[in-house]
Nucleic acid binder design. Structure first.
Ligand SMILES: NC(=O)c1ccc[n+]([C@@H]2O[C@H](COP(=O)([O-])OP(=O)(O)OC[C@H]3O[C@@H](n4cnc5c(N)ncnc54)[C@H](O)[C@@H]3O)[C@@H](O)[C@H]2O)c1
Ligand SMILES: NC(=O)c1ccc[n+]([C@@H]2O[C@H](COP(=O)([O-])OP(=O)(O)OC[C@H]3O[C@@H](n4cnc5c(N)ncnc54)[C@H](O)[C@@H]3O)[C@@H](O)[C@H]2O)c1
Lengths: 215, 215
DNA sequence: ATAATTATGTGACAATAATCACGACAATCT
DNA sequence: AGATTGTCGTGATTATTGTCACATAATTAT
């Protein structure tokens, strides 16, 4: 199966652990985490091993401790403000999402030219893009979510990089050029829908083949 | 680097090709596709080779033909209606996104209990969940986007599977159980933001190391 | 005490994926 | 026509990733 990569998996583990904490569970096991997310227990242990996370022989893992170690390894054990560029369809959805507040990630402000003046009506304040520079001088943010139209994405990255942003989540479909010391995560939602079509077709074909075999 | 997998890449190639078509470009080369998305040209050729896509020796690829072949291989050369379950923050964003209409993927209806009666005001009609079954009897849809709260996701999958849906895009954070002949693509947006934090930290550390080396 | 049980942790192995090196061959040039 | 160039296509090679088997430690049972 496709478990993506070790960092993604670490984040998935963290997500499960957060839910365990919420339900008041104190101890867990590789095997039971596996049941939650469908990643083999041995893979989970291997990942932990890789990151130097250790449990108790025969005793599994203390939920709170494990969660803390996962956070440390992911760099999520600190305040993590994000800014949001583009308060359109997708930007609004992200801004209004309350799940983030339970995690470590917080969107603290959005920027969109549609807003003439600064406004604090939505869950987060929305400012005109011209004020990004000033905002970042007061708020040491390192991460930005780009939910702007494809054709302005690159120029926004350039500007944001110049202002000190080093981590980007890019929802536009175009590839962005950035310096070595920054990181972009491209999230292409259209692609996410399309690949499902492929794999669904695959499943169909497999069935066909099996049917053929039986004949 | 992390180019995800061959299917994802195929979809990326398709996306570039669509843009080339729009700009009226007729011929392209592995090397120029590479420039657009940052995937090495040899990887691109290897992928094409794997899927039996062939170009012209020294002549590159005919854009329209290549696009068509990519679509065929991805299973996107046909009508691909999706239904959307959950018309909340994220559901609305997806429903209102116009990029889909230019591609092959179309969301034709949404279902949400907040709508008491059927309504056609938004870009797509939104119906109460009780009418899913009836709707699918009239419309042979195979794919669904799940943008519902975490705690109802599994029960919706069960219901949708029973009604014939075989491909799912799941935006909730919990893993879904499905039969072998169906496919779920989990898209966890919180995780997408979090992993950026990790990689940004990595870049920082790398810098630190280099600084150390110089000292 | 000793044995049995149940997890963890990790090195060895297997599978998968990416890169490289180079041959084939069509187009263009001389 | 023959040489040259540019691009493709792919087998061989290397790197990455996942799986497995089993040694190890803690706990429980006898
Ligand atoms: N909405 C979706 O479901 C969806 C799906 C796939 C991809 N995407 C991609 O996500 C991105 C955003 O999509 P959307 O649907 O939210 O688009 P949208 O048009 O609704 O929103 C874009 C927003 O960006 C703002 N904007 C424009 N220039 C700006 C600038 N320089 N600085 C700050 N803000 C600026 C616009 O005013 C607008 O509000 C696009 O690249 C789109 O291709 C969206
Ligand atoms: N919005 C985001 O940015 C974001 C980010 C990360 C994850 N998510 C995840 O995406 C999912 C949706 O998030 P959201 O922000 O859109 O939530 P939301 O609460 O705004 O929307 C959920 C919608 O689902 C509807 N719903 C409830 N039960 C239903 C049912 N049985 N059938 C059909 N519809 C039903 C609700 O009426 C609501 O409109 C959640 O699982 C959330 O964790 C969202």
């Amino acid at each position: 199966m496709n478990y993506k990569n070790h960092v993604t998996r670490l984040s998935q583990y963290k997500s499960v652990l957060q839910r365990l904490v919420k339900s008041g569970i104190e101890k867990t096991y590789a095997e039971s985490i596996s049941k939650h997310i469908g990643i083999p227990a041995t893979q989970i242990r291997k990942d932990f091993s890789l990151f130097g996370i250790r449990g108790n022989k025969r005793g599994g893992y203390n939920v709170l401790e494990l969660l803390e170690e996962l956070k440390v390894n992911l760099g999520l054990n600190r305040d993590l403000p994000f800014i949001l560029i583009g308060y359109g369809n997708l930007g609004k959805a992200l801004a209004r999402y309350h799940g983030f507040h339970e995690g470590c990630v917080r969107i603290i402000a959005a920027f969109d030219p549609k807003v003439g003046v600064l406004s604090s009506i939505p869950p987060i304040p929305v400012y005109p893009p011209a004020s990004i520079s000033a905002f970042l001088k007061d708020n040491p943010v390192k991460h930005a979510v780009l939910a702007v139209p494809d054709d302005v994405a690159q120029s926004m990255v350039d500007e944001l990089y110049a202002e000190g942003i080093r981590g980007f989540i890019n929802f536009s479909a175009i590839a962005l050029n950035i310096p070595e010391d920054a990181y972009v995560n491209n999230v292409d939602l259209e692609l996410e829908l399309e690949t499902v079509v492929y794999y669904t077709k695959e499943a169909e074909n497999k069935e066909d083949k099996e049917v053929k075999k039986l004949v």
